[in-house]
Design a protein around this nucleic acid. Structure first.
Lengths: 77, 77
DNA sequence: CGGTTGATATAGCAGCTGGTATATGCTGGT
DNA sequence: ACCAGCATATACCAGCTGCTATATCAACCG
């Protein structure tokens, strides 16, 4: 946990989603949130709640090497 | 997913937590939410967001037989 | 060309969340 | 008896969420 919080939570979300090759709608479904939440995160309008960050971290872990650098960059600690 | 939503989400939360023998604070930490959220859920003041329900379902699945009946009762579908 | 479909962006609003703070009761220790 | 610690309950408020709805744009297709 403990993702960096500035200035790039938006990047984390968008990049994670792109690496999974999912639309905002499908990524949202995978996380268990609404598509609007993902959209707002990516456009910097709101920040993900901690439980959502935890899910994103979990997805990155499941991706193996594909998600490793993002894990290090945003969840190191 | 698709937990029943009435009249007993509060019971689901409290019962799940009790079976894990955790305080509200520790259960909250396990879920990735604040202790206040768990407290509000158990006292019927608010309902868990979908992503939180998903986490609760996940915990119940990890509990094996201990959580089986709750899964059936609240997450059947 | 016009129509449809999928993906994205944005708004408004009721309801939920986390942080901070206060209060109660209970247990264990001095 | 006093008190520190823990678990619980509740309040307030800024920020986030889901829902419903609208709008734009690109790709496809008849």
């Amino acid at each position: 946990m403990a993702a960096i919080n500035q200035p790039t939570l938006a990047e984390l979300v968008r990049e994670s989603r792109h690496r999974l090759e999912l639309s905002q709608t499908k990524f949202a479904a995978k996380l268990g949130v609404s598509f609007q939440s993902v959209n707002r995160w990516e456009n910097g309008r709101t920040n993900p709640l901690p439980i959502a960050l935890k899910r994103i971290e979990h997805l990155l872990r499941q991706m193996g090497d594909t998600g490793k650098d993002l894990l290090v960059k945003y969840f190191s600690e």
